Amino acid sequence: MDESIEAMEPELVESGVVDPPEKNSAPLLRPGSMVMMSLTVADYEMHYWPKLQGAIDQLLTLKPGGYISISYEQMYSCVYKCVCKQFSERLYKDLLNHIEQHVCHLAEQLSNSMQDSRHFVETFAFTMNQYLQALAGIVPIFNYMNRFYVENKLKTDLNEELRKIFRSHVVDSQITKLLNLVDEASCQPFAISPPTMASLIQNLFNLNAEYVHLKPGLFSRYIPNVLPPTSANQMDAYIAEVKQMQSDIHKMQGFNSNFDGSRKRSFEEDVSIN
Rank of each mutant, 00 (worst) to 15 (best):
Ala55His: 11
Ser117Gly: 10
Leu59Thr: 01
Ala185Arg: 03
Leu60Asp: 00
Ser38Phe: 14
Gln234Ile: 02
Thr61Leu: 06
Met128Thr: 03
Phe267Thr: 14
Asp2Ile: 05
Lys85Phe: 08
Ser220Leu: 09
Leu39Ser: 13
Gln130Leu: 01
Gln174Thr: 08
Asp260Ser: 06
Pro140Ala: 04
Glu269Ile: 15
Phe219Asn: 07
Ser168Cys: 10
Arg90Met: 09
Leu132Lys: 08
Glu89Thr: 14
Ile99Pro: 08
Arg221Ile: 00
Gly66Thr: 08
Val182Pro: 06
Asp270Cys: 10
Pro20Met: 05
Ser71Val: 09
Met75His: 03
Leu106Lys: 07
Leu110Met: 12
Gly32Phe: 11
Glu9Pro: 00
Gly66Ala: 06
Pro195Arg: 10
Leu200Glu: 11
Glu9Thr: 08
Val35Ile: 11
Asp270Glu: 11
Asp172Asn: 12
Leu91Asp: 07
Pro216Ser: 09
Ile56Ala: 06
Glu14Ile: 13
Ser38Asp: 15
Asn225Leu: 04
Val139Glu: 04
Lys251Ile: 03
Thr127Met: 11
Glu268Ser: 15
Pro50Glu: 01
Val13Ile: 13
Tyr222Trp: 02
His47Gly: 08
Gln74Trp: 07
Pro10Met: 02
Glu3Gln: 05
Thr230Phe: 10
Lys243His: 06
Glu45Phe: 07
Lys81Cys: 10
Ile223Trp: 06
Ser247Gln: 15
Phe148Asn: 04
Tyr92Leu: 02
Leu60Met: 00
Gly54Trp: 03
Glu14His: 15
Cys78Lys: 00
Tyr48Asn: 06
Leu91Val: 11
Tyr76Pro: 00
Glu100Leu: 05
Lys63Trp: 00
Trp49Arg: 00
Thr61Asn: 09
His119Glu: 11
Phe124Arg: 00
Met245Asp: 07
Gln133Arg: 11
Pro20Ser: 08
Glu210Trp: 02
